[in-house]
Every structure is written in structure tokens, then in C-alpha cells.
Design a protein around this nucleic acid. Structure first.
Length: 477
RNA sequence: UCCUCUUUAGCUCAGUUGGUUAGAGCAUCUGACUGUUAAUCAGAGGGUCCUAAGUUCGAGUCUUAGAAGAGGAGCCA
């Protein structure tokens, strides 16, 4: 006798096998039918209990959420709805689950409620599907880069430079918060802190990744990233996972090619390996859409959307072209936008990005060559002197999925831009060294992993695609 | 951080111009039934109406302050 997973048992086509299985009870119907799940698949296996020959005491302990060990025979199902089922010969209750208090009831729960029970929410179909997909997407990320000659690099999580400019940072300190040491200027003296200087949690591994790209050629980091922004939206987390490849001798066009090929590859991987989970999530979304008016329903189902991304080229549009499209668009002329586009140089608001992606092109869009003054200091200045080789990839329903650029490789230009933004050279002496010794064209991008998971699962709140979301005022679990 | 909305039973929600003992569905429990698919049928139990202060003869309902959650915005990934 072997201990199997539900996934393995459901795939078997030989009947009459003596088998064992351990899992958790999802529902127990008519004192006879256990729907058993062990996490190996979205599907349950039906276990048929001979209740006439099972003690009343045992039957009472078969409750939603209980852990059980079942021995029995795998047979062709007599009922409709499943191919195989288990005729139970013995059942052992491994762990009881008090039905009066168990929060996950056999009924629909709101995502808000399940978020408060995040330790139990993967016992539901939706969250188990989402987290299996998240796991496989993570694997697909490493698979893609490894197969394409990239080295995985672990960039530091505690960082000593505060010049990355990607957002507010979380300070890392072990000074006494009530009574910190103070210097002569009356400020906190970080020289006495653990690292002898001010340190923070990383907001990006990019600068460190650049150093490795300039020796190992093609590298990527995939790790946790922290932003202390007070953002209360369904698209932002204080702690999230970011994928950041960095490649030497690659220009912006190559960067766009890489990002597009990468995204198609990982989405294709789950289309091939998570069919059942995707079908479940697709049906969940279809049910949800039935409650909406026709005009608000999406044109494509979840799987159709994923296939569309894999099969079609992303639309590449320069910032300048995008401004022209927006300026001549209906909502701009009729003043429907909250921010009317009037001239070149305006920063694009999310309403503009949504218009381009969801109304105008109806596909993922890569915007490139942005005005220099709305982008970061390290981006490669174009020959026109006003734009930089930056690119953002915008996805329908998600917004900005990727932000990347060709990096400024010319020492003098980089120094000028840092000076203009008051970034002290001492802070980034090592970053400048890359431009002093063997500098070369290089590029990379950052991709928010959770936003990828959102797109792949159709979930609309980023807090529902990470196990334990960290957001302002919330670090439970 | 700003704007809008929400907070009533374990969950999802209703609750009229302020008025007796605050309701429904699901869940739970009890009983019936037993090849069911979120089983069905009958019955029962279950309430700090988010918190604090106020107005009033009387507040779930009105006012003020606060907390938490959601949606949108900004910022971004």
C-alpha cells in the first residue's frame, strides 16, 4: 500500500487498488460522502463511508476542516460528477476541526474576510489555485533565465545606499528608539548603530545587479523588496517580490525584446502546467461577471487573455507618439480625463495608461523614450538631449507591470545628472566605478512579481496573491 | 496622504419620518432521510448594532471625533 496524493489517485485508471490517502475534509454529505483535498490539486476525491458500519462517534468527527487518514479501495464511481472514488475501509481522524468555530465554512466567503484568516484561506479553492499558480510562476521565472544563460544573483536586502530613488525606505536599526544616541548637531548618530551608518531595507536590487552584469554578463535577481510608501491601493504592497534582470551590451530595443519574450514564456508555462487551476479561476470570474451589466464584462475570458498575450506582439509606442494619440483622443477632446493632455512633457496618469492599453490598442503596450525629467537619474540620455531610453510595459487591468531602461554608461553624463539631482557621488562611488573601468552599454528592468500573479490569476487585489500581505497598518501573521 | 463608501448574528446582508421584544439567507446544533455533488426537509440556539462623547422622553437610525475595511487618486513595481 502506498500513500498517494489526490492528484495521483484521480489520474489513475486502474480500479480495485488498495490505497491510502491523507488530507482535509472539505464537505461531508449525507453521512456518506467525504470530499477530500490535500492541496495537490484543485480537485477533491470523493471517499464513500459505509456509515452503517462506522461508529456514530467517528462520523461526528468527520467535519469540515478535519485532517483524516483514509484506507480503502479505488473504484469507478457509481455516482455522476467524478470518474473515480474511494470506498473507505478504515478512517482515522488525525486532527479534529470544531465546526462551531472553524472559520472556513462550506459556503462563499468574501476575500476581505479570508484576508483576516490568511492562515486558513489556502484551504479554499480560489486561494489554493492562486498559490499553486504563484509557485509555478516563480519556478518559470528561474527556469526562463537559467535556460537563457542568466546567473541568479542575490542582491542585499539591507542596503547602505539611500540613493536608489525608488521610494520611501524602511530604516534598519537596533538603536534604542526611546533614547537614541545624538551627535553634536542634535540628530540621531548612526555611527553608533549596528552597521556604523544609516541602513534601510532595499527598494531595488538594480544598482547592485548592474555591478554583476558588468562582469558576469547576464544576471537577474528575484527577491523581496520594500517600500515605506503610504499607498493604500489594490496594486501596492509594502513588501513585494521583484524580478530584475540586468544585461551587459544590451540596448533598450534588446531590453524590450527580453521583457516581452520573458513574460510570454512564463505565462505559457502556466498555461501548459496549471490548466485545472486556471479553468477554476476562469469559471470563478465568469460567475462573478454574471452579476455585472453587459457593458462592464470583459471581452475575453482569463485563459483567452493569457493566450492572447502569448500569441500577439506587444505594441511598442514612443512617449511622443503616445502623447499625440492621447491629445487627439475622444476623452481628451471632450475633457473626460481628469488631467487633460496639452503638451509634450506631461507625466502620464493612470487614466491615460488605461486608455492606451484598454481602449486604444487593446493589448499590452510598451511605452519608451520618456522625457528625461520625469524619469530616474541612471537612465541613458538620448541624442536629442530631452528623452531617456526608458520603457514601461502596461497591461490591461493591471497598469504598469514592468519598468526598465538602458543605463547611462557615460561617466561625465552620469555625474552631471547626479549633481543636478543632488545625489552625492560618495554614496555611489562603486556605481560610478562601473563607468570608469570598462564601461559598456547595458540595460535591465524590474517586474513586480505580484502584478504578474494578478494578471495570471485574474485576481484584482494584490493582497490576495501574496501569502501574508504587508500594507500600511497591517502586518498580521 | 487625499476623495468617496462601508462597519448590525459565525459569514453575507436587510432594517421605513428616531418609537414595543433588531430580521433574512447561509453556517452551526437537534431530528428525519440516505448514492450525495455547496444534498434535501422540519425545528432550535445564536446580537457589546465598530469605539467614545453628544442631541433626545427615547438612538441600530441624528451630530461630532476616532478606529478598521473597500473602491478611486497620487506614487510606483
Amino acid at each position: 500500500m502506498n500513500t498517494n496524493t489526490v492528484s495521483q489517485l484521480l489520474a489513475k485508471d486502474q480500479f480495485g487498488l488498495e490505497i491510502e490517502i491523507k488530507g482535509w475534509v472539505r464537505t461531508f454529505r449525507a453521512k456518506r460522502f467525504i470530499a477530500l483535498n490535500d492541496g495537490s490539486t484543485i480537485n477533491n476525491i470523493q471517499c464513500v463511508v459505509d456509515f452503517e458500519n462506522t461508529s456514530e462517534e467517528t462520523l461526528k468527527r468527520i467535519t469540515t476542516g478535519a485532517a483524516v487518514h483514509i484506507k480503502g479501495e479505488l473504484v469507478e464511481s457509481q455516482g455522476k460528477g467524478q470518474k473515480v472514488e474511494i470506498v473507505v475501509t478504515s478512517i482515522e481522524i488525525l486532527g479534529d476541526s470544531d465546526p462551531e468555530n472553524y472559520p472556513i465554512q462550506p459556503k462563499k466567503h468574501s476575500f476581505e474576510f479570508l484576508r483576516e484568516n490568511a492562515h486558513l484561506r489556502t484551504r479554499t479553492n480560489t486561494f489554493s489555485a492562486v498559490m499553486r499558480l504563484r509557485s509555478n510562476l516563480s519556478f518559470a521565472v528561474h527556469k526562463y533565465f537559467t535556460e537563457n544563460g542568466f546567473y541568479n544573483m542575490h542582491t542585499p536586502i539591507i542596503t547602505g545606499s539611500d540613493a536608489e530613488g525608488a521610494g520611501e525606505m524602511f530604516r534598519v536599526t537596533n538603536l534604542d528608539a526611546k533614547n537614541p544616541p545624538v551627535n553634536q548637531e542634535g540628530k540621531v548618530d548612526f555611527k553608533e548603530d549596528f552597521f556604523g551608518k544609516e541602513t534601510n531595507l532595499t527598494v531595488s536590487g538594480q544598482l547592485e545587479a548592474e555591478t554583476y552584469a558588468m562582469s558576469l554578463g547576464k544576471v537577474y535577481t528575484f527577491g523581496p523588496t520594500f517600500r515605506a510608501e503610504n499607498s493604500n491601493t489594490s496594486r501596492h504592497l509594502s513588501e513585494f517580490w521583484m524580478i530584475e534582470p540586468e544585461v551587459a551590451f544590451m540596448d533598450l530595443a534588446g531590453n524590450m525584446d527580453l521583457a516581452e519574450d520573458f513574460m510570454k514564456s512564463v505565462i505559457n508555462y502556466i498555461l501548459e502546467n496549471n490548466k485545472e487551476d486556471l479553468e477554476f479561476l476562469e469559471n470563478r470570474l465568469l460567475d462573478e461577471e454574471k452579476t455585472k451589466p453587459q457593458s462592464q464584462r470583459s471581452e475575453m475570458s482569463l485563459i483567452e487573455k493569457l493566450k492572447f498575450v502569448v500569441d500577439n506582439n506587444f505594441k511598442r509606442v514612443s512617449y511622443t507618439e503616445a502623447i499625440e494619440i492621447l491629445r487627439n483622443s475622444k476623452p481628451n477632446k471632450k475633457k473626460k480625463f481628469n488631467y487633460i493632455i496639452e503638451e509634450w512633457g506631461a507625466d502620464l496618469q493612470s487614466e491615460h495608461e488605461r486608455f492606451l492599453v484598454e481602449k486604444h490598442f487593446k493589448c499590452p503596450v510598451i511605452l519608451f523614450d520618456y522625457p528625461a525629467n520625469i524619469k530616474a537619474f541612471y537612465m541613458r540620455l538620448n541624442e536629442d538631449g530631452k528623452t531617456v531610453r526608458a520603457m514601461d510595459i502596461l497591461f490591461p487591468g493591471i497598469g504598469e507591470m514592468v519598468g526598465g531602461s538602458q543605463r547611462e554608461e557615460r561617466l561625465d553624463v552620469l555625474k552631471e545628472k547626479m549633481a543636478a539631482l543632488d545625489i552625492p557621488e560618495e554614496e555611489l562611488w562603486w556605481y560610478l566605478d562601473l563607468r570608469k573601468y570598462g564601461t559598456a552599454v547595458h540595460s535591465g528592468f524590474g517586474l513586480g512579481f505580484e502584478r504578474l500573479v494578478m494578471f495570471a490569476t485574474g485576481m484584482t487585489n494584490i493582497r490576495d496573491v501574496i501569502p501574508y500581505p504587508r500594507t500600511p497598518q497591517n502586518a498580521e501573521f
